[in-house]
């Protein structure tokens, strides 16, 4: 009231303060990644120092050594297969069920919807042991399939597809029928291509979830036969936690695909996660 002249400058100060605060926040959140990078390229002398050395020395020996410590290629291959197969399974089951629940009237449809929603209420932690028992009886222990099948259908994906298919005009279905399409041809050529944003969302969320999967593969994998990167990384730290440089390099190695995907699909990824929360 009294200092109307001071107001604009006060606003300016506030704006700069906000920018400074944002810079600090961003730096704080990125610091762990940065420090891991510094550690991974540190020389031996620069690791155990106090205060910690935050300037990289660009010694890549630990990156080279990481690859001699464990068959990372094999583990990455496992993780890629598991993640890829899960994405495909979730997409296929999600598209089919979502389509049926959106567009195919059948007796029991409401029951199926209710059953699916009820499935969301089951905390995965609580059924860890029976899941293991089921996997044992299906001979899925210590296998790649065992890390895909339990995640092969996702209720959230089903509902996302259902919501989307419901928005498609009936005329598209009619038109494609006139063009000679059967229901699966309609799905393949019309509905699914139009659902590309949903496909993308489901793919991204499944990718993030599967690449980070830990407890289940920890439990069901034993030897090298089906071990994914996260489990391998966990063991590596367990075998000798004092090899910080190699561990930092290995951690960054398993983080790399996440970083790449994040940089490429940032916006879509964030909105997917936001959408995931709304269900």
């Amino acid at each position: 009231m009294t200092n109307t002249a001071a107001r604009p400058s006060g606003r300016l100060v506030r704006r700069w303060a906000r920018f400074a605060l944002m810079a600090v926040v961003a730096a704080a959140f990125l610091l762990p990644f940065y420090w891991a990078l510094v550690l991974s390229v540190a020389t031996r002398a620069n690791v155990f120092t106090m205060p910690p050395d935050l300037v990289p020395s660009w010694d890549f020996i630990s990156w080279a050594r990481v690859f001699t410590l464990a068959p990372w290629g094999l583990y990455f291959l496992h993780s890629v297969i598991i993640t890829g197969a899960t994405i495909i399974a979730v997409l296929v089951t999600g598209v089919l069920a979502g389509y049926a629940l959106a567009e195919v009237p059948f007796r029991g449809r409401e029951v199926v919807m209710g059953v699916l929603l009820a499935g969301l209420m089951v905390p995965p932690e609580a059924i860890l042991i029976p899941n293991y028992v089921v996997a044992y009886h299906l001979h899925l222990l210590n296998s790649l399939a065992g890390q895909v099948v339990p995640f092969g259908a996702n209720v959230f994906a089903v509902f996302l597809f259902r919501q989307f298919f419901k928005t498609l005009p009936v005329e598209l279905w009619d038109a494609s029928r006139m063009d000679g399409a059967r229901w699966w041809q309609y799905l393949r050529h019309i509905a699914v291509p139009l659902a590309r944003p949903v496909v993308m969302t489901v793919t991204l969320l499944t990718f993030v979830a599967q690449w980070s999967q830990f407890q289940w593969p920890l439990i069901i994998t034993q030897g090298n036969g089906a071990r994914p990167v996260e489990v391998a990384l966990s063991y590596l730290q367990g075998f000798d936690g004092s090899h910080w440089r190699e561990l930092a390099a290995a951690s960054l190695l398993t983080l790399a695909p996440i970083f790449v995907v994040f940089l490429l699909t940032q916006r879509h990824l964030i909105s997917s996660v936001a959408g995931r929360a709304q269900i």
């Binding site: 089919l96 389509y99 049926a100 195919v104 449809r109 029976p130 089921v134």
Partner: peptide, 30 residues
């Protein structure tokens, strides 16, 4: 359409049955 609808939701239900519904019952038994 009756059969088709069920056929389409079946894969999803099968996965969930094996690793959600059945275990949810089984956990109490075990």
């Amino acid at each position: 359409s009756f059969n088709l609808g069920w056929a389409l939701v079946l894969p999803a239900l099968a996965f969930l049955a094996l690793f959600t519904y059945l275990p949810a019952v089984l956990v109490a038994a075990i």
